[in-house]
Design a protein around this nucleic acid. Structure first.
Length: 294
DNA sequence: ATTTGACCCTGCATGC
DNA sequence: TGCATGCAGGGTCAAA
């Protein structure tokens, strides 16, 4: 489900409902995700207050600090006596995998199948994680987020300045792999998954099977512009809902209507009318127009 | 060093 | 109707 636009849509949707809230209860119904939910997850979170949400690649970052302390490193007076752990500052690293979604619900709304985790807030709202395939995960980071090995090696954000055609050109020299899996490599650029890689290559007129190392700088500049264009448009549309993606407030995304190639093999190219072809690249379905993409 | 394949898991569409 | 098969938005790891 979620590529960058869907994670960004989720972040924007849930932020107004979670930022500044205190977590008063955490319910883990199914902790066996791709990374198992840590044993001390509940203890660490209860009593924390949520700071401004961020996103890095397809990761949602949720900063937490102790709700009752005003000074960094301070201690709650009665904590020791009561034997209650005082939560410490940290960040939740949340990945939605293939089928995960986060949405806002109210206390009393019954969980459905595959609603694995609830964070319950002091205002009666809650953040509910749903993930049928359980390829997603949530982890708690104590230290610097950028030092985490999962984030340390990531390439630039596609909507940031360091991502451009020159970078694609430079990193692709000598690479024989097809350009589509190259574009989906998170060390090259983050957040470009199977849907938007196919769409960007169509917009740029590049055959997804072409060797990455045999594409000119000029064409990579077109590709970088196409990546930015398609991701920005998808964010504006609230992401792409293929099956069950919903924003943080339960709305589907409307970008599906704008897809030119993804999921349309056998249908007519919107530009030339030819039949769209399906090939497999890097074990991922790849649809393209043999007339419009070279 | 680069690239490929298996794997994590459930649900759905398809074909027999 | 049931059953087997293949495929799905992602990422990691081992092996070639």
């Amino acid at each position: 489900m979620p590529e960058l636009p869907e994670v960004e849509t989720t972040r924007r949707g849930i932020a107004p409902h979670v930022e500044g809230r205190e977590i008063v209860e955490v319910i883990v119904r199914q902790g066996r995700l791709r990374v198992p939910v840590p044993d001390d997850f509940v203890d660490r979170l209860v009593g924390s207050r949520i700071g401004p949400l961020a996103r890095r690649a397809k990761y949602l970052l949720i900063p937490l600090r102790p709700a009752e302390t005003d000074t960094p490193g301070g201690r709650r007076e009665d904590a020791g006596a009561a034997g209650v752990e005082v939560p410490s500052s940290g960040t939740l690293l949340w990945h939605l995998g293939m089928s995960g979604s986060l949405r806002i619900a109210r206390l009393g709304e019954l969980p459905k199948k595959h609603d694995h985790i609830d964070l319950v807030f002091d205002d009666g709202g809650l953040l509910r994680y749903h993930d049928p395939r359980r390829f997603g995960f949530v982890d708690w980071l104590a230290g610097g987020v950028e030092q985490d090995p999962r984030l340390a090696r990531l390439g630039p954000e596609p909507l940031s300045d360091p991502f451009d055609g020159e970078r694609l050109y430079r990193l692709s020299r000598g690479r024989r792999m097809a350009v589509k899996p190259f574009l989906m490599d998170n060390e090259v650029v983050v957040g470009v998954g199977n849907i938007y890689a196919a769409e960007a290559l169509f917009l740029a007129g590049i055959d997804p099977r072409r060797a990455a190392g045999r594409i000119s700088l000029e064409r990579y500049e077109r590709l970088a512009a196409a990546v930015r264009e398609v991701l920005a448009a998808a964010i504006t549309q609230g992401g792409t809902t293929l099956r069950d993606f919903v924003s943080g407030t339960g709305e589907p995304g409307y970008f599906k209507q704008r897809l030119n190639v993804y999921g349309r093999h056998g249908q007519a190219c919107r530009r030339c009318g030819g039949e769209l072809r399906l090939v497999t690249l890097g074990q991922r379905a790849s649809v393209f127009c043999i007339e419009c993409q070279h």
